[in-house]
């Protein structure tokens, strides 16, 4: 774990604890950014690095658990909750919604650092997957409308002839489209294309009629 390519966000309203955490992370060579409320955290510009969010449950503007639910939709770093009086329902709820750990104050440095480490590792992975998907989506956007029509038919396992009939075009034209699709999506084989389509969550359609149009 190096200090430069990762960052830990700390959101706690208690200044003393915030400082102490910053100090502890610094002492362990972890870069950190400190926020006194959820509002400050959301409103700030954050570096695009593998990160971890240490979130106090009792915040002045919003409950930490509610904040977790709010940011769940977007891309956000894994969360490590800290709380003054942890109770079981809160911790269960936090973990179920994807929190990495739920620490009760006062907590030991190993527990905290371990949680941070795990969180950052998780974030690294998430980020990598997210970057690949973004690339695929970029490629998909480059397809022509007809190619986007061809793709689901091809990955559905239809023969060229069937797909051409489906679209009302000649088989040759279909083959040209298919080659273009594979080229644009950098698919090395049909299986690869199927996997990409799956990643892109392209629905598989066997026919127009069955598509339920």
């Amino acid at each position: 774990m190096t200090a430069d390519d990762t960052i830990v966000f700390v959101v706690d309203d208690d200044e003393a604890l915030r400082e102490a955490l910053g100090e502890l992370l610094a002492a362990n060579g972890v870069r950190s950014a400190l926020f006194r409320s959820a509002g400050h955290y959301i409103g700030s510009d954050k570096p695009d690095l593998p990160a971890c969010l240490i979130l106090d449950v009792e915040l002045p503007d919003i409950n930490g658990l509610d904040l977790q639910r709010q940011i769940a939709e977007g891309d956000h770093p894994p969360i490590v909750f800290i709380t003054g009086h942890g109770d079981i329902p809160s911790s269960v709820r936090a973990i179920k919604h994807g929190a990495v750990d739920f620490l009760t104050k006062p907590f030991s440095d190993t527990a905290l650092l371990g949680a941070i480490r795990a969180a950052i590792a998780q974030d690294r992975e998430t980020r990598a997957r997210r970057a690949e998907l973004a690339l695929l989506r970029q490629r998909y956007r480059e397809l022509s409308p007809r190619e986007r029509e061809v793709l689901p038919l091809v990955v559905s396992g239809l023969l060229n002839k069937q797909a051409a009939a489906e679209l009302g075009i000649s088989e040759v034209t279909l083959q040209i489209h298919r080659r273009n699709v594979m080229q644009k999506l950098a698919a090395s084989s049909l299986a690869d294309l199927v996997r990409i389509a799956e990643r892109l969550e392209i629905p598989i359609r066997h026919s127009r009629r069955m598509g339920g149009i």
Binding site: D14, A16, L17, E19, A20, L21, E23, L24, A26, A27, N28, E58, I82, G84, H85, K105, P106, F107, S108, D109, L112
Partner: peptide, 25 residues
């Protein structure tokens, strides 16, 4: 009691964290 505990735990948590940091330094 919970409220009092929270109030007391907060500085205590800071003390613990600082202690670890100090130890680390």
């Amino acid at each position: 009691s919970a409220s009092i505990a929270h109030e007391v735990n907060q500085p205590l948590a800071a003390v613990v964290a600082n202690s670890h940091a100090c130890q680390r330094w």
